[in-house]
Amino acid sequence: MPEPKVKKPWTRDAVLRQVGTQAMLLAVLAVVMFPVLWVLSLALDPRNISKPLELTLIPPGASFEAFRKVLFDPFTNLCTVPNDLDSCMTFSDLLINSLLVALTTSVLAVVVGASAAYAFSRFRFWGRQIGMIGFIALIMMPATGVLAPLFVLMNTIRIGGEPLRKTLLGLAIAYTATALPFAIWNLKGYFDTVPIDLEQAALVDGASPMRVYTRIVLPLSTPALAVTVLFSFMAGWTEFILAWLFLDDPSRFTLAMALRGMQGQFTTPWSEFAAMSVLMSIPILLLFFGLQRWIVSGLTVGSVKG
């Protein structure tokens, strides 16, 4: 956190400025939280309705029943053996799968993306511009018709005797492809701001480009790396269309899939649906809290200068 070294006293101006800033931030917070609180109120509402009838955070007869159901009851539509409750997925099973997919996605995207971004930022080579445009161009085409051929292809590639399509790894690789263009462009942009003098000095001293990359460029780019981790984690955490298409075995299903699965054709358990939406955003908040110190850890870059 960029704190000033010497604590300045709270002058009248500083206090007034702080009050103004806080008023503005609270206003933004109100707008941001309004729909979220609205969902929370639905989750607390025992009447199982899709829209609250009045604007109250705590509806009449509010209870945490929906949260309890989502967290501890088996998901009866996601069972490996039909009508056997013991074989049904629970929230914690789904959570583990979601974490596996999202973490694999973010690790793959950061490692693979940073390596490509480094090349785009530091080397001058044939096809650099076309290569960079190429990566971004691959997210331009809407996926209306690409799911079927992707399904067939992932079904053909086998890993350990099983089609890649049916595995969480296959899913994570597919999500990595959606996160990579941002990862590469974002990291390349940040690498560009890392002063090049330090690297050149290290190269003159006989360090290999690989060493320069892992010891100088990466440590100085933690904010962009953290943003990339967050972004690709999110991509793996919230996606459900590909997941529903690819995975057959309920024991591999994710939270986002279960959430989508709750929306029935005729009935939807709205309170549970809302409760689960709220629960699903909590791990992301925790991740952000953990990453925040890296996102704002820019001190190192400043100290390189001079």
Partner: peptide, 25 residues
Amino acid sequence: ARAWAYILPAGLVMLVISVFPQMFQ
């Protein structure tokens, strides 16, 4: 060669997941 070696892993992922289906489309 060195530059493209750094890009290769990302290129492979995109080739399988994005390029092929889009060519098909």
